[in-house]
Computed example of a mutant assay.
Amino acid sequence: MIGRIDEVVFDCADPGALAHFWADVLGGTPQRRSDDWHYLDPPGWTRVAFQRVPEGKVVKNRVHLDVEVDDIPAATVQAEALGATRVGEIHADTAGSFQVLRDPEGNEWCVVKPA
């Protein structure tokens, strides 16, 4: 083992806005380290941070968060009310079900319900 995850960092245009969005999704209190760096510590999970970068998002994420929920349709509606965008329909297979979403800056993530 080399080490452990310290935090998951999102590159973004507006760190404060994304920190508030993700705090509403995951829990925790948004914290400001500087105008260019905000973060939150969701209960029971590692730190999630947001750093300002000059370039915009142009392609699909190579890594994304799966957020476990009890009710995918209800969680999707709640996420959309916070500023998320739904991508396609709910997918289901033997492992469970998931709905792809995008956060306010277009980062893909999923609400999931294991089988």
Rank of each mutant, 00 (worst) to 15 (best):
H38I: 14
T85C: 11
I90D: 00
V58T: 10
T85D: 09
H38M: 15
G44I: 08
F50K: 02
P54E: 09
K60R: 14
V53R: 08
R86Q: 05
R47T: 13
D36Y: 10
A84Q: 13
A74L: 05
T76M: 08
G83W: 01
E68L: 07
R52K: 15
D66M: 02
A75Y: 01
D41Y: 10
A79K: 00
H38C: 15
A75M: 02
A84C: 13
G44E: 10
I90L: 02
V63A: 13
K57S: 00
A81Y: 02
G44D: 12
N61I: 00
L40F: 06
V53P: 00
D66Y: 07
Q78D: 12
R86S: 05
G88Y: 06
V77D: 10
L65K: 00
G83T: 04
A74V: 06
L82V: 01
D70M: 04
T94E: 15
P43S: 06
V53A: 01
V87H: 11
T94Q: 12
G44S: 13
G56A: 15
D66F: 02
A49F: 03
A79C: 14
V69G: 01
F50Q: 01
H91Q: 14
A49V: 08
T85G: 09
Q51V: 15
A74Q: 15
A92E: 14
Q78N: 05
V59R: 15
R47P: 02
V58N: 08
V63W: 02
H91G: 04
W45Q: 11
V77W: 05
H38R: 07
Q51S: 14
A84W: 01
E89P: 03
D70T: 13
W37N: 08
D41F: 03
P42T: 14
K60D: 15
H64L: 01
E89R: 08
P54A: 06
A79Q: 00
E80C: 14
V53K: 11
V53L: 04
L40A: 07
F50R: 03
G83I: 03
V87N: 09
V87Y: 03
A75H: 02
V59D: 13
H38N: 11
A84E: 03
D71Q: 13
V48N: 01
T46F: 10
G83E: 02
D93S: 02
Q51K: 13
A49K: 01
R62C: 05
P54H: 11
A92Y: 05
H38T: 09
Y39Q: 10
A49P: 02
K60Y: 06
L82Y: 00
G56K: 06
V69T: 04
H38L: 15
V77A: 12
P42L: 11
R62I: 06
R52I: 04
A81E: 03
V59M: 11
N61L: 02
D35G: 12
P73D: 11
V87C: 12
V87P: 08
A75N: 01
Y39N: 10
P43N: 11
P43C: 13
Q51I: 14
F50T: 03
H91T: 08
V59E: 15
P54I: 06
R47I: 05
D35P: 04
G44C: 05
D71P: 07
V53F: 00
P54D: 12
